[in-house]
Design a protein around this nucleic acid. Structure first.
Lengths: 243, 243
DNA sequence: CGAGCCGTTGAGGGGATTCAAGCTCAGTGG
DNA sequence: CCACTGAGCTTGAATCCCCTCAACGGCTCG
Protein backbone atom coordinates (compact mmCIF):
# COMPACT_ATOMS: atom_id res chain seq x y z
CA UNK A 1 0.00 0.00 0.00
CA UNK A 2 2.79 2.33 0.86
CA UNK A 3 4.85 1.10 -2.04
CA UNK A 4 2.53 2.69 -4.52
CA UNK A 5 5.07 5.42 -5.02
CA UNK A 6 8.76 4.76 -4.98
CA UNK A 7 11.02 6.94 -2.92
CA UNK A 8 11.34 10.01 -5.04
CA UNK A 9 15.12 9.92 -5.04
CA UNK A 10 14.86 6.74 -7.02
CA UNK A 11 12.40 8.20 -9.42
CA UNK A 12 14.28 11.27 -10.49
CA UNK A 13 17.98 11.73 -10.02
CA UNK A 14 17.72 15.45 -10.51
CA UNK A 15 15.11 15.82 -7.79
CA UNK A 16 16.34 13.76 -4.86
CA UNK A 17 14.45 13.35 -1.62
CA UNK A 18 16.83 15.81 -0.04
CA UNK A 19 15.37 18.48 -2.20
CA UNK A 20 11.85 17.28 -1.56
CA UNK A 21 12.24 17.36 2.21
CA UNK A 22 14.07 20.68 2.14
CA UNK A 23 11.37 22.33 0.14
CA UNK A 24 8.43 20.40 1.55
CA UNK A 25 5.54 22.75 2.05
CA UNK A 26 4.85 21.42 5.51
CA UNK A 27 8.44 21.21 6.64
CA UNK A 28 8.29 24.10 9.04
CA UNK A 29 5.17 22.81 10.71
CA UNK A 30 6.02 19.12 10.58
CA UNK A 31 8.13 16.99 12.85
CA UNK A 32 11.41 17.65 11.11
CA UNK A 33 10.87 21.36 11.23
CA UNK A 34 13.01 21.22 14.34
CA UNK A 35 15.99 19.94 12.38
CA UNK A 36 18.56 22.04 10.62
CA UNK A 37 19.61 21.35 7.05
CA UNK A 38 22.58 19.24 8.07
CA UNK A 39 20.47 16.92 10.17
CA UNK A 40 17.83 16.80 7.48
CA UNK A 41 20.50 15.71 5.05
CA UNK A 42 21.21 12.63 7.12
CA UNK A 43 17.65 11.31 7.05
CA UNK A 44 16.07 12.31 3.81
CA UNK A 45 17.22 9.21 1.99
CA UNK A 46 15.20 6.98 4.31
CA UNK A 47 11.93 8.79 3.96
CA UNK A 48 9.56 7.96 1.18
CA UNK A 49 6.36 9.53 0.04
CA UNK A 50 3.04 7.95 -0.68
CA UNK A 51 -0.20 9.10 -2.23
CA UNK A 52 -3.24 7.22 -1.08
CA UNK A 53 -6.74 7.23 -2.54
CA UNK A 54 -9.69 7.86 -0.21
CA UNK A 55 -10.76 5.03 2.08
CA UNK A 56 -7.31 3.46 2.04
CA UNK A 57 -6.23 2.10 5.38
CA UNK A 58 -2.81 3.41 6.43
CA UNK A 59 -2.51 0.89 9.22
CA UNK A 60 -4.71 -1.21 11.47
CA UNK A 61 -4.96 -1.42 15.22
CA UNK A 62 -2.45 -3.99 16.37
CA UNK A 63 -0.04 -3.49 13.47
CA UNK A 64 3.55 -2.82 14.33
CA UNK A 65 5.10 -1.42 11.26
CA UNK A 66 8.06 0.46 12.64
CA UNK A 67 7.20 3.79 11.10
CA UNK A 68 5.52 7.07 11.86
CA UNK A 69 3.87 9.27 9.26
CA UNK A 70 3.55 12.96 8.57
CA UNK A 71 0.41 14.04 6.76
CA UNK A 72 1.36 16.35 3.90
CA UNK A 73 -2.18 16.86 2.66
CA UNK A 74 -5.61 15.34 3.09
CA UNK A 75 -7.47 14.08 6.12
CA UNK A 76 -6.94 10.90 8.10
CA UNK A 77 -9.42 9.49 10.60
CA UNK A 78 -8.79 7.22 13.57
CA UNK A 79 -11.29 4.45 14.09
CA UNK A 80 -11.89 2.15 16.98
CA UNK A 81 -14.33 -0.67 17.56
CA UNK A 82 -15.90 -0.47 20.99
CA UNK A 83 -16.28 -3.50 23.20
CA UNK A 84 -19.97 -3.33 22.40
CA UNK A 85 -19.04 -3.91 18.79
CA UNK A 86 -19.83 -0.61 17.10
CA UNK A 87 -17.34 1.52 15.25
CA UNK A 88 -16.41 4.94 16.55
CA UNK A 89 -14.28 7.60 14.93
CA UNK A 90 -12.17 9.00 17.70
CA UNK A 91 -10.24 11.82 16.07
CA UNK A 92 -9.04 13.17 12.72
CA UNK A 93 -5.64 14.42 11.62
CA UNK A 94 -4.74 16.82 8.83
CA UNK A 95 -1.86 18.58 7.13
CA UNK A 96 1.28 18.74 9.20
CA UNK A 97 0.09 16.24 11.81
CA UNK A 98 2.26 13.37 12.94
CA UNK A 99 0.45 10.06 13.25
CA UNK A 100 1.29 6.58 14.46
CA UNK A 101 3.58 7.83 17.21
CA UNK A 102 2.96 4.64 19.19
CA UNK A 103 5.52 3.02 16.90
CA UNK A 104 8.26 5.16 18.43
CA UNK A 105 7.69 3.27 21.68
CA UNK A 106 7.79 -0.12 19.96
CA UNK A 107 4.07 -0.34 20.54
CA UNK A 108 1.37 -1.52 18.18
CA UNK A 109 -0.92 1.10 16.67
CA UNK A 110 -3.92 1.81 18.85
CA UNK A 111 -6.45 2.67 16.18
CA UNK A 112 -7.21 2.01 12.56
CA UNK A 113 -6.01 4.95 10.49
CA UNK A 114 -7.95 5.52 7.27
CA UNK A 115 -7.66 8.16 4.56
CA UNK A 116 -10.82 10.26 4.26
CA UNK A 117 -9.71 12.23 1.20
CA UNK A 118 -6.78 11.61 -1.12
CA UNK A 119 -3.87 11.69 1.29
CA UNK A 120 -0.22 12.51 0.71
CA UNK A 121 2.12 11.48 3.47
CA UNK A 122 5.71 10.66 4.15
CA UNK A 123 6.76 7.56 5.98
CA UNK A 124 9.54 7.89 8.53
CA UNK A 125 11.20 4.76 9.90
CA UNK A 126 11.28 4.67 13.67
CA UNK A 127 14.96 3.84 13.64
CA UNK A 128 15.65 7.18 11.96
CA UNK A 129 13.83 9.13 14.62
CA UNK A 130 15.50 7.24 17.44
CA UNK A 131 18.93 7.72 15.93
CA UNK A 132 18.35 11.42 15.58
CA UNK A 133 16.95 11.58 19.09
CA UNK A 134 20.39 10.67 20.42
CA UNK A 135 21.94 13.87 19.17
CA UNK A 136 19.15 16.26 18.32
CA UNK A 137 17.48 17.51 21.47
CA UNK A 138 15.05 19.81 19.59
CA UNK A 139 13.60 16.79 17.86
CA UNK A 140 12.62 15.17 21.14
CA UNK A 141 11.11 18.44 22.25
CA UNK A 142 9.14 18.60 19.05
CA UNK A 143 7.99 15.02 19.51
CA UNK A 144 6.60 15.76 22.92
CA UNK A 145 4.77 18.74 21.53
CA UNK A 146 3.14 16.47 18.99
CA UNK A 147 2.03 14.10 21.68
CA UNK A 148 0.57 16.88 23.72
CA UNK A 149 -1.41 18.34 20.86
CA UNK A 150 -2.78 14.93 19.95
CA UNK A 151 -3.87 14.55 23.55
CA UNK A 152 -5.42 17.98 23.58
CA UNK A 153 -7.24 17.34 20.34
CA UNK A 154 -8.64 14.08 21.67
CA UNK A 155 -9.92 15.80 24.80
CA UNK A 156 -11.46 18.62 22.82
CA UNK A 157 -13.08 16.14 20.47
CA UNK A 158 -14.72 14.31 23.32
CA UNK A 159 -15.74 17.48 25.14
CA UNK A 160 -17.26 19.30 22.19
CA UNK A 161 -18.35 16.57 19.81
CA UNK A 162 -19.92 13.99 22.05
CA UNK A 163 -22.20 16.11 24.21
CA UNK A 164 -25.42 17.94 23.69
CA UNK A 165 -28.15 17.71 21.07
CA UNK A 166 -27.40 16.16 17.69
CA UNK A 167 -27.70 19.43 15.82
CA UNK A 168 -25.06 21.17 17.87
CA UNK A 169 -22.70 18.20 17.64
CA UNK A 170 -22.95 18.33 13.87
CA UNK A 171 -22.35 22.08 13.80
CA UNK A 172 -19.24 21.63 15.93
CA UNK A 173 -18.02 18.92 13.60
CA UNK A 174 -18.42 21.20 10.60
CA UNK A 175 -16.52 23.89 12.44
CA UNK A 176 -13.70 21.44 13.06
CA UNK A 177 -13.66 20.23 9.47
CA UNK A 178 -13.41 23.83 8.32
CA UNK A 179 -9.95 23.94 9.85
CA UNK A 180 -8.93 21.19 7.46
CA UNK A 181 -10.43 22.85 4.41
CA UNK A 182 -8.53 22.41 1.15
CA UNK A 183 -6.99 25.14 -0.97
CA UNK A 184 -10.35 25.91 -2.57
CA UNK A 185 -11.93 26.49 0.81
CA UNK A 186 -13.97 23.33 0.57
CA UNK A 187 -14.37 20.98 3.49
CA UNK A 188 -14.50 17.22 3.39
CA UNK A 189 -18.09 16.19 4.02
CA UNK A 190 -18.17 12.69 5.51
CA UNK A 191 -20.63 10.01 4.52
CA UNK A 192 -23.74 9.98 6.67
CA UNK A 193 -22.82 6.79 8.45
CA UNK A 194 -19.36 8.20 9.16
CA UNK A 195 -20.97 11.24 10.71
CA UNK A 196 -22.90 8.76 12.77
CA UNK A 197 -19.69 7.03 13.90
CA UNK A 198 -18.19 10.37 14.87
CA UNK A 199 -21.13 11.89 16.69
CA UNK A 200 -22.92 8.78 17.92
CA UNK A 201 -26.11 9.19 15.97
CA UNK A 202 -28.01 7.12 13.40
CA UNK A 203 -27.58 7.54 9.65
CA UNK A 204 -31.10 8.89 9.35
CA UNK A 205 -30.51 11.55 11.96
CA UNK A 206 -27.30 12.65 10.29
CA UNK A 207 -29.04 12.82 6.93
CA UNK A 208 -31.95 14.84 8.29
CA UNK A 209 -29.65 17.34 9.96
CA UNK A 210 -27.34 17.75 6.97
CA UNK A 211 -30.33 18.33 4.69
CA UNK A 212 -31.71 20.84 7.14
CA UNK A 213 -28.42 22.78 7.25
CA UNK A 214 -28.30 22.75 3.47
CA UNK A 215 -31.80 24.24 3.30
CA UNK A 216 -30.77 26.85 5.87
CA UNK A 217 -27.83 27.84 3.70
CA UNK A 218 -25.15 26.88 6.21
CA UNK A 219 -23.85 24.15 3.92
CA UNK A 220 -23.38 24.20 0.14
CA UNK A 221 -22.45 20.86 -1.41
CA UNK A 222 -19.80 21.17 -4.12
CA UNK A 223 -19.38 17.50 -4.89
CA UNK A 224 -20.21 14.09 -3.54
CA UNK A 225 -18.00 14.44 -0.50
CA UNK A 226 -17.17 18.11 -0.43
CA UNK A 227 -19.02 21.24 0.58
CA UNK A 228 -18.55 24.90 1.24
CA UNK A 229 -19.57 26.47 4.54
CA UNK A 230 -21.14 29.84 5.20
CA UNK A 231 -19.07 30.92 8.18
CA UNK A 232 -21.54 33.56 9.31
CA UNK A 233 -24.53 31.26 9.10
CA UNK A 234 -22.60 28.54 10.89
CA UNK A 235 -21.64 30.84 13.70
CA UNK A 236 -25.18 32.07 14.03
CA UNK A 237 -26.58 28.56 14.04
CA UNK A 238 -24.14 27.59 16.77
CA UNK A 239 -24.98 30.63 18.83
CA UNK A 240 -28.70 29.98 18.71
CA UNK A 241 -28.16 26.32 19.60
CA UNK A 242 -25.95 27.14 22.56
CA UNK A 243 -27.54 24.83 25.07
CA UNK B 1 -2.77 24.70 48.22
CA UNK B 2 0.31 22.67 47.55
CA UNK B 3 2.07 24.24 50.49
CA UNK B 4 -0.18 22.43 52.89
CA UNK B 5 2.60 19.99 53.54
CA UNK B 6 6.21 21.06 53.67
CA UNK B 7 8.85 19.10 51.85
CA UNK B 8 9.35 16.13 54.03
CA UNK B 9 13.08 16.61 54.28
CA UNK B 10 12.34 19.81 56.13
CA UNK B 11 9.89 18.14 58.40
CA UNK B 12 11.98 15.31 59.65
CA UNK B 13 15.73 15.25 59.44
CA UNK B 14 15.88 11.53 60.05
CA UNK B 15 13.47 10.77 57.21
CA UNK B 16 14.67 12.85 54.25
CA UNK B 17 12.92 12.95 50.89
CA UNK B 18 15.63 10.70 49.53
CA UNK B 19 14.31 7.92 51.64
CA UNK B 20 10.72 8.74 50.78
CA UNK B 21 11.37 8.65 47.05
CA UNK B 22 13.50 5.54 47.28
CA UNK B 23 10.85 3.63 49.14
CA UNK B 24 7.85 5.23 47.48
CA UNK B 25 5.24 2.58 46.85
CA UNK B 26 4.63 3.82 43.34
CA UNK B 27 8.25 4.41 42.44
CA UNK B 28 8.53 1.53 40.03
CA UNK B 29 5.40 2.48 38.15
CA UNK B 30 5.86 6.24 38.33
CA UNK B 31 7.87 8.58 36.16
CA UNK B 32 11.10 8.27 38.09
CA UNK B 33 10.96 4.51 37.97
CA UNK B 34 13.25 4.88 34.98
CA UNK B 35 15.97 6.46 37.11
CA UNK B 36 18.62 4.65 39.07
CA UNK B 37 19.35 5.46 42.68
CA UNK B 38 22.15 7.85 41.81
CA UNK B 39 19.95 9.92 39.56
CA UNK B 40 17.17 9.80 42.09
CA UNK B 41 19.55 11.15 44.67
CA UNK B 42 20.07 14.28 42.62
CA UNK B 43 16.41 15.25 42.49
CA UNK B 44 14.75 14.08 45.64
CA UNK B 45 15.44 17.31 47.49
CA UNK B 46 13.35 19.28 45.03
CA UNK B 47 10.27 17.13 45.21
CA UNK B 48 7.65 17.72 47.81
CA UNK B 49 4.58 15.80 48.76
CA UNK B 50 1.07 17.03 49.28
CA UNK B 51 -2.11 15.55 50.66
CA UNK B 52 -5.26 17.10 49.32
CA UNK B 53 -8.82 16.71 50.57
CA UNK B 54 -11.53 15.78 48.06
CA UNK B 55 -12.74 18.50 45.69
CA UNK B 56 -9.48 20.42 45.95
CA UNK B 57 -8.34 21.88 42.68
CA UNK B 58 -4.76 20.93 41.82
CA UNK B 59 -4.56 23.47 39.07
CA UNK B 60 -6.80 25.35 36.68
CA UNK B 61 -6.86 25.54 32.92
CA UNK B 62 -4.55 28.36 31.91
CA UNK B 63 -2.30 28.11 34.96
CA UNK B 64 1.40 27.83 34.31
CA UNK B 65 2.90 26.58 37.49
CA UNK B 66 6.12 25.02 36.30
CA UNK B 67 5.49 21.61 37.77
CA UNK B 68 4.21 18.15 36.93
CA UNK B 69 2.64 15.80 39.44
CA UNK B 70 2.66 12.10 40.13
CA UNK B 71 -0.46 10.69 41.74
CA UNK B 72 0.55 8.48 44.66
CA UNK B 73 -2.98 7.63 45.69
CA UNK B 74 -6.52 8.76 45.05
CA UNK B 75 -8.31 9.83 41.90
CA UNK B 76 -7.98 13.06 39.94
CA UNK B 77 -10.45 14.21 37.31
CA UNK B 78 -9.87 16.54 34.37
CA UNK B 79 -12.60 19.05 33.70
CA UNK B 80 -13.24 21.28 30.78
CA UNK B 81 -15.92 23.86 30.04
CA UNK B 82 -17.25 23.52 26.52
CA UNK B 83 -17.79 26.50 24.29
CA UNK B 84 -21.48 25.96 24.85
CA UNK B 85 -20.83 26.61 28.51
CA UNK B 86 -21.39 23.24 30.15
CA UNK B 87 -18.82 21.36 32.15
CA UNK B 88 -17.47 18.06 30.94
CA UNK B 89 -15.20 15.61 32.69
CA UNK B 90 -12.79 14.44 30.04
CA UNK B 91 -10.70 11.82 31.81
CA UNK B 92 -9.59 10.59 35.21
CA UNK B 93 -6.14 9.69 36.52
CA UNK B 94 -5.19 7.39 39.38
CA UNK B 95 -2.24 5.94 41.26
CA UNK B 96 1.03 6.11 39.37
CA UNK B 97 -0.25 8.47 36.70
CA UNK B 98 1.68 11.57 35.68
CA UNK B 99 -0.43 14.69 35.27
CA UNK B 100 0.13 18.24 34.12
CA UNK B 101 2.69 17.23 31.48
CA UNK B 102 1.87 20.34 29.48
CA UNK B 103 4.10 22.21 31.90
CA UNK B 104 7.13 20.37 30.54
CA UNK B 105 6.58 22.19 27.26
CA UNK B 106 6.21 25.57 28.96
CA UNK B 107 2.54 25.41 28.17
CA UNK B 108 -0.40 26.31 30.34
CA UNK B 109 -2.50 23.47 31.72
CA UNK B 110 -5.27 22.45 29.36
CA UNK B 111 -7.87 21.32 31.90
CA UNK B 112 -8.89 21.89 35.46
CA UNK B 113 -7.53 19.08 37.61
CA UNK B 114 -9.59 18.30 40.70
CA UNK B 115 -9.20 15.70 43.43
CA UNK B 116 -12.13 13.28 43.55
CA UNK B 117 -11.03 11.42 46.65
CA UNK B 118 -8.33 12.34 49.15
CA UNK B 119 -5.27 12.56 46.93
CA UNK B 120 -1.60 12.14 47.73
CA UNK B 121 0.78 13.40 45.11
CA UNK B 122 4.29 14.59 44.64
CA UNK B 123 5.14 17.80 42.88
CA UNK B 124 8.08 17.78 40.50
CA UNK B 125 9.50 21.07 39.23
CA UNK B 126 9.78 21.16 35.46
CA UNK B 127 13.37 22.37 35.71
CA UNK B 128 14.29 19.13 37.43
CA UNK B 129 12.84 17.00 34.68
CA UNK B 130 14.47 19.05 31.97
CA UNK B 131 17.82 18.93 33.70
CA UNK B 132 17.61 15.19 34.00
CA UNK B 133 16.46 14.88 30.43
CA UNK B 134 19.84 16.14 29.30
CA UNK B 135 21.64 13.11 30.66
CA UNK B 136 19.07 10.45 31.35
CA UNK B 137 17.70 9.04 28.13
CA UNK B 138 15.44 6.49 29.86
CA UNK B 139 13.58 9.34 31.49
CA UNK B 140 12.63 10.84 28.14
CA UNK B 141 11.54 7.44 26.95
CA UNK B 142 9.39 7.07 30.03
CA UNK B 143 7.92 10.52 29.49
CA UNK B 144 6.82 9.65 26.00
CA UNK B 145 5.22 6.49 27.29
CA UNK B 146 3.21 8.59 29.72
CA UNK B 147 2.02 10.84 26.97
CA UNK B 148 0.99 7.92 24.85
CA UNK B 149 -0.99 6.26 27.59
CA UNK B 150 -2.76 9.50 28.39
CA UNK B 151 -3.67 9.79 24.72
CA UNK B 152 -4.86 6.21 24.60
CA UNK B 153 -6.93 6.66 27.73
CA UNK B 154 -8.56 9.76 26.31
CA UNK B 155 -9.48 7.93 23.11
CA UNK B 156 -10.84 4.95 25.01
CA UNK B 157 -12.83 7.26 27.24
CA UNK B 158 -14.47 8.93 24.30
CA UNK B 159 -15.07 5.68 22.42
CA UNK B 160 -16.58 3.71 25.29
CA UNK B 161 -18.07 6.32 27.58
CA UNK B 162 -19.75 8.74 25.24
CA UNK B 163 -21.69 6.39 22.97
CA UNK B 164 -24.75 4.26 23.31
CA UNK B 165 -27.63 4.24 25.77
CA UNK B 166 -27.24 5.83 29.18
CA UNK B 167 -27.32 2.55 31.05
CA UNK B 168 -24.41 1.08 29.15
CA UNK B 169 -22.37 4.26 29.52
CA UNK B 170 -22.83 4.08 33.27
CA UNK B 171 -21.87 0.41 33.38
CA UNK B 172 -18.69 1.17 31.42
CA UNK B 173 -17.89 3.98 33.81
CA UNK B 174 -18.22 1.66 36.80
CA UNK B 175 -15.97 -0.83 35.06
CA UNK B 176 -13.37 1.89 34.60
CA UNK B 177 -13.65 3.08 38.19
CA UNK B 178 -13.12 -0.48 39.35
CA UNK B 179 -9.58 -0.23 38.02
CA UNK B 180 -8.97 2.60 40.46
CA UNK B 181 -10.48 0.77 43.43
CA UNK B 182 -8.83 1.39 46.79
CA UNK B 183 -7.15 -1.19 49.00
CA UNK B 184 -10.49 -2.30 50.40
CA UNK B 185 -11.81 -3.02 46.93
CA UNK B 186 -14.17 -0.07 47.05
CA UNK B 187 -14.63 2.24 44.11
CA UNK B 188 -15.13 5.97 44.20
CA UNK B 189 -18.76 6.65 43.37
CA UNK B 190 -19.10 10.13 41.87
CA UNK B 191 -21.86 12.55 42.72
CA UNK B 192 -24.81 12.30 40.41
CA UNK B 193 -24.10 15.56 38.65
CA UNK B 194 -20.49 14.48 38.16
CA UNK B 195 -21.71 11.31 36.53
CA UNK B 196 -23.75 13.61 34.36
CA UNK B 197 -20.68 15.64 33.41
CA UNK B 198 -18.80 12.47 32.51
CA UNK B 199 -21.48 10.67 30.55
CA UNK B 200 -23.48 13.60 29.22
CA UNK B 201 -26.71 12.88 31.00
CA UNK B 202 -28.90 14.74 33.47
CA UNK B 203 -28.65 14.34 37.22
CA UNK B 204 -32.03 12.67 37.36
CA UNK B 205 -31.09 10.08 34.78
CA UNK B 206 -27.86 9.31 36.64
CA UNK B 207 -29.77 8.96 39.89
CA UNK B 208 -32.38 6.67 38.38
CA UNK B 209 -29.78 4.41 36.82
CA UNK B 210 -27.61 4.21 39.93
CA UNK B 211 -30.64 3.34 42.04
CA UNK B 212 -31.64 0.73 39.52
CA UNK B 213 -28.20 -0.89 39.58
CA UNK B 214 -28.30 -0.87 43.36
CA UNK B 215 -31.63 -2.67 43.34
CA UNK B 216 -30.23 -5.16 40.84
CA UNK B 217 -27.32 -5.89 43.14
CA UNK B 218 -24.63 -4.65 40.78
CA UNK B 219 -23.71 -1.84 43.13
CA UNK B 220 -23.45 -1.85 46.93
CA UNK B 221 -22.92 1.55 48.54
CA UNK B 222 -20.43 1.49 51.39
CA UNK B 223 -20.41 5.19 52.17
CA UNK B 224 -21.48 8.50 50.77
CA UNK B 225 -19.08 8.38 47.87
CA UNK B 226 -17.92 4.81 47.84
CA UNK B 227 -19.39 1.51 46.74
CA UNK B 228 -18.53 -2.09 46.10
CA UNK B 229 -19.20 -3.73 42.76
CA UNK B 230 -20.41 -7.23 42.01
CA UNK B 231 -18.09 -8.09 39.14
CA UNK B 232 -20.23 -10.96 37.88
CA UNK B 233 -23.43 -8.96 37.92
CA UNK B 234 -21.67 -6.04 36.25
CA UNK B 235 -20.35 -8.23 33.48
CA UNK B 236 -23.73 -9.80 32.96
CA UNK B 237 -25.46 -6.44 32.88
CA UNK B 238 -22.98 -5.23 30.28
CA UNK B 239 -23.41 -8.32 28.18
CA UNK B 240 -27.17 -8.03 28.08
CA UNK B 241 -26.92 -4.34 27.22
CA UNK B 242 -24.42 -4.93 24.42
CA UNK B 243 -26.08 -2.76 21.83
C1' DC C 1 -34.71 25.92 62.76
C1' DG C 2 -34.82 27.56 58.25
C1' DA C 3 -31.78 27.53 54.15
C1' DG C 4 -29.57 25.09 50.81
C1' DC C 5 -27.52 21.17 48.54
C1' DC C 6 -27.96 16.50 47.09
C1' DG C 7 -30.39 12.50 45.96
C1' DT C 8 -34.69 10.31 44.69
C1' DT C 9 -39.01 9.52 42.34
C1' DG C 10 -43.10 10.76 39.36
C1' DA C 11 -45.45 12.74 35.22
C1' DG C 12 -45.28 14.69 30.79
C1' DG C 13 -43.03 16.18 26.55
C1' DG C 14 -39.47 16.23 23.01
C1' DG C 15 -35.74 14.60 20.40
C1' DA C 16 -33.53 10.67 18.54
C1' DT C 17 -34.18 5.96 17.15
C1' DT C 18 -36.51 2.41 14.76
C1' DC C 19 -38.95 0.64 10.99
C1' DA C 20 -40.16 1.37 6.38
C1' DA C 21 -40.48 3.14 1.84
C1' DG C 22 -38.67 5.78 -2.17
C1' DC C 23 -34.98 8.21 -4.26
C1' DT C 24 -30.55 9.02 -6.91
C1' DC C 25 -26.70 7.32 -9.10
C1' DA C 26 -22.86 4.32 -10.69
C1' DG C 27 -21.79 -0.12 -12.40
C1' DT C 28 -23.16 -4.34 -14.94
C1' DG C 29 -24.66 -7.18 -18.40
C1' DG C 30 -28.43 -8.61 -21.52
C1' DC D 1 -29.49 1.29 -25.10
C1' DC D 2 -31.63 0.36 -20.94
C1' DA D 3 -33.43 -2.60 -17.44
C1' DC D 4 -31.34 -4.51 -13.32
C1' DT D 5 -28.99 -4.07 -9.13
C1' DG D 6 -27.10 -2.44 -4.92
C1' DA D 7 -25.24 1.17 -2.06
C1' DG D 8 -25.96 5.49 -0.16
C1' DC D 9 -29.13 9.29 0.83
C1' DT D 10 -33.64 11.10 1.96
C1' DT D 11 -38.12 11.40 4.01
C1' DG D 12 -42.21 9.78 6.77
C1' DA D 13 -44.56 7.72 10.87
C1' DA D 14 -44.51 5.47 15.27
C1' DT D 15 -42.04 4.34 19.30
C1' DC D 16 -39.07 4.94 23.06
C1' DC D 17 -35.48 6.81 25.75
C1' DC D 18 -34.01 10.62 28.03
C1' DC D 19 -34.86 15.38 29.31
C1' DT D 20 -37.65 18.77 31.65
C1' DC D 21 -40.36 20.25 35.30
C1' DA D 22 -41.84 19.35 39.76
C1' DA D 23 -42.20 17.74 44.44
C1' DC D 24 -40.30 15.55 48.51
C1' DG D 25 -36.92 13.70 52.11
C1' DG D 26 -32.39 13.56 54.22
C1' DC D 27 -28.55 15.96 55.50
C1' DT D 28 -25.27 19.71 56.77
C1' DC D 29 -24.48 24.19 58.31
C1' DG D 30 -25.08 28.96 59.45
Amino acid sequence: MLTQTLPLYLQDESNPQAHVCGSCEVRRTALFGALDDAALERVHAHIDNADLPPETRLYARGDNRGAVFTVRSGIVRFERVTEAGDRRIVRVAGRGDLIGQEALLQQAYRDDAVACTPVALCRIPVSQVQQLGQTEAPLLQELMHRWQSALDEAATWSAELTAGPARRRLLKLLQLLQRHANAGGEIWLPRRNQIGDMLDMRVETASRLVSQLRREGVLHPTGTHHARLDAAALGQALASAQA
